[in-house]
């Protein structure tokens, strides 16, 4: 019975962490799907979400909700500027050049935040208290429910946007074939910009809702970005729900690995499974195979 309770705690904590990975993974996938870019600065959007919220609360004395909106809006603007200054000037860039540019941008953003905000870790107050809730023999915090709720909202929102609005459909068209999309009158450049804006918003939202649990500092983005990337790859880099499942599985695996096998090797276990998935099903867990276009 004790073991069962433990396992249920592992799984539930893991899913909560996994939901965050899923959100970040989703923000990776949004950019990738309309541009083919892996944005290594994605983790910095997450960091900015948390940091800007705390800044708005402390410096501007805004109430929590207003601060969150301001932070997400602020990060979105940064995402927009980033696309304009670093991605747009490059024409016909190789994937490698894009990887390096985004890595450079992430170093830049991190450095700026470190100088302007300081190196200290800071905490954001929980949205609705810190009293633990008991679920199936496991305990959760109210903040975890916020995480699950926001994740579901974002997934539904993305689904509606990409499948039921003109802009969303246009962005999907760009990902399938930019030239063809251009020919039928879709402005590919604008769609790329759009994807950065949406992705920055989703990423920063993820950063905001975990800040009360994990606290935040200028350098939290790297690891979260990597994990989100992992989730997206597991989900096949695109299929919206696949990425979400990828994130949840990654989170649960980490937590189970830490609890049942070895806490020191938990990240190694997660990455090993990722490698196996890549070797066996390079197209992701939930996606059908594709043939290479030459």
């Amino acid at each position: 019975m004790e073991l069962l309770n433990q396992v249920s705690q592992f799984v539930i904590s893991g899913l909560a962490t996994g939901a965050i990975y899923a959100l970040i993974g989703l923000s990776f996938a949004i950019i990738f799907n309309s541009t083919g870019i892996i944005n290594f600065a994605q983790g910095e959007f997450v960091m900015l979400g948390g940091v800007l919220t705390i800044l708005c609360i402390n410096a501007l004395q805004l109430p929590l909700l207003a601060a969150i909106c301001a932070a997400v809006a602020g990060t979105t603007v940064i995402g927009l500027v980033f696309e304009r200054l670093a991605i747009r000037p490059l024409k016909n860039a190789t994937p490698l050049a894009l990887i390096i540019i985004t890595i450079g941008a992430s170093i830049l953003i991190r450095g700026l935040v470190m100088l302007l905000w300081g190196k200290d870790t800071q905490a954001l107050p929980a949205f609705s208290g810190n009293d633990p809730i008991s679920v199936a023999g496991a305990t959760l915090l109210p903040q975890h429910l916020w995480i699950f709720g926001v994740t579901i909202l974002v997934i539904v929102g993305c689904r509606l946007f990409f499948h039921h609005t003109i802009s969303g459909k246009a962005m999907r068209a760009c990902s399938f074939n930019p030239r063809a999309a251009n020919l039928v009158g879709v402005s590919v450049g604008r769609m790329v910009l759009f994807s950065f804006v949406i992705s920055a918003a989703v990423g920063s939202l993820a950063g905001v809702i975990i800040a009360p649990l994990t606290m935040t500092a200028y350098d939290v983005g790297v690891m979260l970005g990597l994990k989100g990337f992992c989730a997206a790859i597991m989900g096949g880099m695109g299929s919206g729900l696949g990425t979400v499942l990828g994130g949840l599985i990654l989170g649960a695996l980490e937590s189970l690995g830490a609890g049942l096998i070895s806490s020191g090797y938990k990240d190694a276990i997660a990455f090993l499974i990722l490698l196996l998935i890549l070797f066996i099903r390079p197209q992701g867990l939930f996606k059908k195979g594709e043939t290479d276009r030459v």
């Binding site: 880099m237 020191g264 990240d267 090993l272 490698l275 070797f279």
Partner: peptide, 28 residues
Amino acid sequence: FPVLRLKGHYLAMATLGVGVIANIAFNE
């Protein structure tokens, strides 16, 4: 053999994974 079957960002991720695992091994 398995790693280089992958391309582009999948290859980037796989090699990154090898790097992370090796680093954890040095630590542990």
